[in-house]
Nucleic acid binder design. Structure first.
Lengths: 244, 244
DNA sequence: CGGTCCGTTGAGAGTGATCAACGTTAGTGG
DNA sequence: CCACTAACGTTGATCACTCTCAACGGACCG
């Protein structure tokens, strides 16, 4: 199977040798069954993970038992990067669906920085995009209503799935429980249910089992707290002096 | 004045030539008066900023006018990095106090990645630490009470100021309005006032004009939603194969 | 001295949480 | 293939944390 390059290639064009390097990573994927942990908070940090297929989640547990889901990861994402600066993993990574991913050991990251400026730039810029996504999430959760958060989440998810080629006609798989969405958006499962029902009743979305269809993008955007920032694409690379 | 190296050197030991390079950046600092913008959302992205002295903030505005403060920046921080992947700045940077900072143009970042793996690693790891901080903030705002958020914020601020050498005996400057804290923690200014008063009345903190003293660290930690993750320090660099 | 910003305090309202119950779906084992 | 069970989704009633609106005092600045 062709690894999902769309995230790595978003800002930097990869050379054939870069592509081969990544393909080398993806040669022996590790499979994890849905609902199984990939790496737990507190585990040793042996490297990062490149998600090849399936959905994953990263989350943090608070002392009172509350869980905050940080992000839903889709194919093409790099997982576990932030924990590189911690003495043990700072987030739990788990499979939402069956997933296929390849571990990238610490030493490989060091070699990359040392010898491959182009892929390093791709990683560095990708990380900045993750920061932008976190800033967005923080903004939604910090200052938008439940309805607005949900709308923003669904639109964002749609766009990310679309980039990965996983949307057909506004319809996409949706393997998330309402409890999970609650932990992601800072709401209770009960309120998630009411909010989704409201979006459904208004005609913005349609819910089937395990799938969602966005019926009215404009409507969703109108209740969304903001418009997503426009990515720079390859211009980001050329701006900092990169050669095509 | 000696530039604040403590952030850049946290994970990677810098060589004398690295240090000189950074000193070169800091040779001609730009000064910005308090409450003045450094760069506005939507402005062109000409580079990033290295904060030499003073406090700054990054924030995002929502369509309904709500402001979410993303982070309070202290001396030694790099500002505006996430916007590198956007077609225009995705966050507003502004001076909280009078500020001294040096602009690092885009091209300098590209040259760094190309020619200086050590400083590149320092930047990459620093960015991961920023992601961890964002994850923390998201967790607090998503699933902790006003009191817990405030406690966590004060403890975190104390620790960061301490790293920069700006704390004396638990006391530090505190130039933030309650409105600002509200925008940071996802609360209203009124509720910030009540929450701070509660922490004060309980004896956890003492407020003087423009300053705060933390009187009872254990007490604050006990109401805080979690303990901060432990940074790996230089081990992060050696783990990925970096030479001392 | 007057104006503006900031902090403080009170009263009332509302969004979302909590508690609880029930129906439905999916997974498991006989 | 069916019975059993646990997980998930749905709905109602009530509660409370935080917001909203409003007013006032003090500090700083022109």
């Amino acid at each position: 199977m062709q690894p999902p390059f769309h995230r790595l290639e978003e800002f930097v064009g990869l050379t054939p040798s870069d592509i081969n390097l990544v393909r080398g990573w993806a040669a022996n994927p590790r499979r994890v069954a849905r609902h199984q942990p990939i790496r737990r908070e507190g585990d040793p940090v042996n490297g990062v993970f490149f998600l090849l297929a399936g959905w994953a989640a990263s989350s943090v547990i608070l002392r009172d038992g509350q869980r905050q889901v940080i992000k839903v990861h889709l194919p093409g994402d790099m997982l576990g990067f932030p924990s590189l600066v911690l003495s043990s993993a700072g987030e739990t990574l788990e499979a939402i669906t069956d997933v296929s991913l390849c571990p990238i050991p610490n030493a490989a990251i060091g070699r990359l920085i040392e010898h491959n400026p182009r892929l390093t730039a791709a990683l560095l810029l990708n990380t900045q995009k993750e920061r932008v996504a976190l800033m967005q999430a923080l903004t939604w959760i910090g200052s938008a209503s439940a309805l607005a958060r949900m709308a923003a989440f669904l639109l964002d998810l749609h766009d990310r799935l679309d980039s990965a080629g996983l949307v057909i006609d506004g319809t996409f798989d949706f393997p998330l429980t309402q409890q999970f969405i609650g932990d992601l958006l800072g709401l209770t499962a009960v309120h998630v249910n009411r909010t989704l029902k409201r979006l459904d009743a208004t005609g913005y979305v349609d819910r089937k089992k395990g799938q969602i269809t966005i019926l009215d993008f404009e409507g969703l955007r109108s209740v969304s707290p903001n418009l997503p920032p426009e990515p720079a694409g390859r211009a980001a690379w050329s701006r900092i002096g990169g050669k095509a």
